[in-house]
């Protein structure tokens, strides 16, 4: 036999046969990747998976002194108590109302702002405006809430001072329950509306300029160009963001609520997260806090997964 034939033949099978040896070889092959993944995976196991075990406390009368194994199991008693509590319906109403305000007033604003920015013909003017309206997005809720106090409070608020000078009675924006949802929404609009324009501006940037030129030749004015070219171009973005927004109907900006809440507006400001915090952490009613948090988590989960499913059905990218 000649040597060439042997060396040209497939190399002897160093590849292990069978499922387990092959798996072992692949594990070895990716060993560096496992080392790289390890800290992150440990993080998810410890800080995301382990707390799920804490959900069991919702079915106990958890007493920290007796511990998990010593505490009494009570089945669904905490859920029954929650659903028969008047506070529960108050929180449900507040969550829904704040989100509805957000949908009606906040949701359209970035679209309108983006359309306006898109019509600006002077690049410098556009850039300056963008820089200004993006800025509030980066501030902490503490800074935003602090500024709000110096603008709207009855004693140190400059806006109230101006209202007073104009001859009107001062308005207790921050302590009057009737104004609370509007005030929270306005705050969100101030902080996030400018930033929200980015995704729409990007969609608008994708429009072929020739289409506008053609429209002008056809005699279309600015309104008609917006209506027939710009809006259709961003329609898919609007629809997707709207559906994803509906998936967040259980969420209310938690830090924002915590900061803007005060005893006078409790009836309109209490939401599930703030209740879980005050009951579970401040008052030590751990099982109640876990129950409220779990209820909110499950409802939020269903809404997010549902809205994401619809978006994917439409052939678009969801949040995951």
């Amino acid at each position: 036999m000649d040597k060439a034939a042997i060396s040209a033949a497939p190399r002897p099978a160093v590849r292990p046969q069978g499922y387990w040896p092959r798996l072992g070889r692949r594990l070895l092959q990716y060993r560096t990747m496992y080392v790289l993944a390890l800290p992150g995976i440990l993080y998810f196991l410890l800080f995301k998976l382990a707390p799920l075990w804490g959900l069991l406390l919702a079915f106990q009368n958890f007493n920290p002194y007796l511990g998990f194994f010593g505490s009494e199991w009570v089945g669904l008693a905490h859920f029954e108590a929650l659903f028969t509590d008047r506070n529960f319906y108050m929180m449900l109403r507040n969550t829904f109302a704040i989100n509805l305000f957000g949908l009606v007033f906040m949701f359209p604003l970035p679209i309108i702002l983006a359309l306006m920015l898109n019509e600006v013909r002077h690049e410098a003017f556009k850039r300056i405006n963008q820089s200004i309206v993006y800025l509030p997005h980066f501030l902490s809720w503490v800074v935003v809430a602090s500024m709000t106090f110096f603008l709207l409070s009855t004693d140190v608020g400059i806006v109230n001072k101006l209202v007073g000078e104009a001859g009107f009675p001062r308005i207790s924006f921050l302590s009057e329950p009737d104004y609370f949802w509007g005030m929270i929404t306005a705050q969100t609009m101030w902080k996030e509306a400018g930033w929200g324009t980015i995704i729409f501006l990007a969609a608008m940037a994708g429009v072929d300029p020739q289409r506008y030129e053609a429209a002008v030749v056809d005699g279309a004015n600015r309104w008609r160009q917006i209506w027939h070219i710009t809006l259709p171009a961003i329609r898919p973005t609007i629809i997707i963001l709207l559906i994803l927004r509906l998936g967040q109907m259980a969420d209310v900006g938690f830090e924002q609520m915590l900061l803007m809440m005060n005893p006078l507006v409790m009836q309109v400001a209490e939401v599930f997260d703030t209740y879980a915090y005050t009951q579970g952490i401040l008052r030590g009613q751990i099982s109640t806090g876990v129950t409220v948090g779990m209820f909110k988590g499950v409802v939020g989960f269903v809404l997010v997964v549902g809205s994401n499913y619809i978006v994917k059905k439409m052939g678009q990218e969801g949040i995951y």
Binding site: Y30, K48, P51, L52, G54, G293, G300
Partner: peptide, 30 residues
């Protein structure tokens, strides 16, 4: 790395944490 055994499971769990969290109190207790 698409060929890495266990990758799908890791991704699945990471995505799960995007849509569900144990809540404020269990995290605090941890």
């Amino acid at each position: 790395k698409k060929g890495m055994p266990g990758r799908g499971m890791m991704m699945g769990f990471i995505v799960f944490t995007l849509v569900f969290s144990a809540g404020i109190v269990p995290n605090y207790l941890l």
